[in-house]
Design a binder for these strands. Structure first.
Lengths: 221, 221
DNA sequence: GGAATGTTTTGAACGTGTTCAAGAATGAGT
DNA sequence: ACTCATTCTTGAACACGTTCAAAACATTCC
């Protein structure tokens, strides 16, 4: 049966994530993981081709949890500002246990070749899941977002979320207070900024921004 | 005389930067640098405490070059959009020889503990120099930028520049065509966006954005 | 049962960045 | 010229991530 194999894999992953949380990324060596899990180093590598892949395991788990908690937090919240706050705050919540590990994670994730790179192919599933959260935040809001923005907005918000995550990594205030402050301040501002799209003079600028985003995006395919 | 010592330091740095450019970051091992320079590994470490510090050497050099070429490119250009383009294009120009090396550089630079981290203490000088370029781009523009924006704008533009650099790293199009396109599209849009600050309804949003930026910034001190 | 095939596990070995005790070279003071 | 302290230089050694041939175990088929 495949159960035994899966059990070893799960054991290695669990031990690794626990050690990441408790002693950080660098101190969690492959040898230490193997020893703690009671397997050989080579065996850990049989299931995870690199230390990065163990980070990917963490990334997926965090994303899954975000999807659940965000969906809960969105219930009953109507306005876009509130919905944005809900998604961003829960995002920070699920990352919190790994804050000390954040900078190592980002350093790993930002490398195009990394399986954890949020723009990369290996994390398509995780990215889509994350995007879906923002899409739901936008689509479920009332008053509704201007039609012409609705298509691209989730992706732009997701991008902004990556920025928030980066800010969070650098945030040394206790409990990452500053990141919370940023979210609380920025969410209503984004909502208000978007509502300006109705003003004639502003509308054209919005159109051009969207046009630029699309043209730069298309060019890559 | 200190000349002999300085000579060795310079030799190691030159060899390292040359190898970074020609064979990339990972293949440029400390042993290879030492051998090519004709010194021992330990000796290279006497001058540079880590491989990262050799990257810092590169960072400083690139920044210096940017300051020079940007100042040239700004001459005779009046409008903000043009000045922004000048600064951003020259920025990409000086980085160009290191494009293949870009992702490793960013992965190194993004780690808060790295001497090359653009937000960190070790690169205060380089960051100030870079900020000064943007300050000059803003202050020298006519028609002038709205007074209330003038103070914070350079810093925000510098931040956007970091974003452009990140985009550039991921840009796989030949000669990084897409990054050029992004710059050409975004620069006039930023200028036009800023001119909207005069519209009453928009003005308040601008004020709040600035207020948020300041409050989040202050909190860190 | 037993061979053949496929899956899982092992631990030694490699090349890496980095450290450090020891030694060589240099310079200052007398 | 001769100390003595300071500055440079060396190369072996360490822990790390990663690889891989070989062994152990499991499964399938006759």
């Amino acid at each position: 049966m495949a159960a035994k194999s899966e059990q070893t894999r799960q054991l290695v992953a669990d031990v690794a994530l626990k050690m990441f949380r408790e002693i950080g990324f660098e101190k969690t060596t492959m040898r230490a993981i193997a020893q703690e899990a009671g397997v050989s180093v080579g065996n850990a590598y049989y299931y995870f081709a690199s230390k990065d892949e163990l980070v990917q395991e963490l990334y997926i788990q965090v994303q899954d949890e975000h999807a659940v908690t965000a969906a809960q937090a969105l219930e009953g919240v109507q306005d876009l500002a509130g919905r944005l706050k809900a998604v961003l705050h829960t995002g920070v919540d699920v990352m919190a246990p790994y804050h000390q590990f954040g900078s190592d994670f980002i350093a790993t994730a930002i490398r195009p070749s990394s399986p954890v790179n949020p723009f990369g192919e290996a994390s398509t599933a995780a990215r889509e899941a994350s995007l879906a959260i923002f899409r739901s935040a936008v689509e479920g809001s009332s008053p509704a977002v201007a039609k012409k923005l609705r298509g691209d907005l989730p992706e732009l918000l997701w991008l902004a979320y990556m920025g928030v995550a980066l800010f969070w990594v650098y945030d040394k205030s206790e409990s990452q207070r500053r990141t919370r402050k940023l979210i609380d301040g920025a969410a209503p501002l984004v909502a208000r900024g978007l509502s300006l799209a109705k003003i004639p003079g502003v509308s054209k600028v919005f159109d051009d921004v969207l046009g630029l985003v699309r043209s730069v995006k298309e060019d890559s395919e």
